[in-house]
């Protein structure tokens, strides 16, 4: 594998996450953005190191002030505020899911790996709502998890069905060959 891949891949990955995070579909009361869809896709398609670097690079850009988080949020406060847990656990999501999948994984395996990763993001969300926003665990669950379950399942399905043809198409690139 080319050495430059280690740095080019996370850069494109972070750029893709940043662009998709700004896309918002007008569905239901909860804002439906593609931020965690993008994280999940990068986690599925990339290898663990590049997937985590992509997510880390994305967080770094947000931290230094670029309005790349969903809803145009930016700056340190997003990383230490009540919803910071979701953002930090994207690192966990990308690391875990990418280590559970490879370029030959089937749709079901991809879906389950992303389901597990996304569940951990919710764990992070509950933790930050509890410890940083002073919210009771039950309330954090009601507010921070339940409204997002159905939209997120939809995103996981989309990730699962897009990943297969995507990996097929990228087969002629050295990085995506296993």
């Amino acid at each position: 594998m080319k050495k430059a891949h280690v740095y080019a891949i996370p850069a494109i990955g972070a750029a893709l996450i940043a662009v998709l995070a700004q896309i918002s579909l007008p569905i239901g009361p909860v804002p439906f953005t593609l931020q965690n869809f993008a994280i999940g896709l990068i986690a599925t398609v990339f290898r663990p190191r590049e997937a985590v670097l992509s997510a880390g690079l994305y967080l770094l850009l947000g931290a230094i002030g670029l309005p790349v988080f969903a809803g145009g949020g930016a700056g340190f406060q997003a990383l230490v505020g009540p919803t910071a847990g979701y953002l930090w656990f994207y690192l966990v999501y990308s690391g875990l899911t990418s280590s559970l999948t490879n370029s030959k994984s089937g749709v079901v395996k991809i879906f389950l790996a992303n389901l597990l990763g996304d569940a951990l993001v919710f764990v992070g969300g509950i933790l930050s709502l509890h410890f940083l926003a002073g919210m009771a665990f039950e309330k954090a669950l009601v507010v921070g998890v339940l409204p997002f379950i159905i939209p997120d399942l939809g995103k996981l399905l989309a990730i699962s069905f897009i990943s297969r043809p995507l990996l097929q198409r990228l087969k002629n690139q050295a990085y995506f060959t296993n």
């Binding site: 080319k2 430059a4 080019a8 494109i12 893709l16 690139q173 990085y175």
Partner: peptide, 20 residues
Amino acid sequence: ITPLIFSSLERIDTIATAME
């Protein structure tokens, strides 16, 4: 979104090769 994702990831090899 689908073609956007495809075309984004397809450029990775070109960039990496140019850097190398």
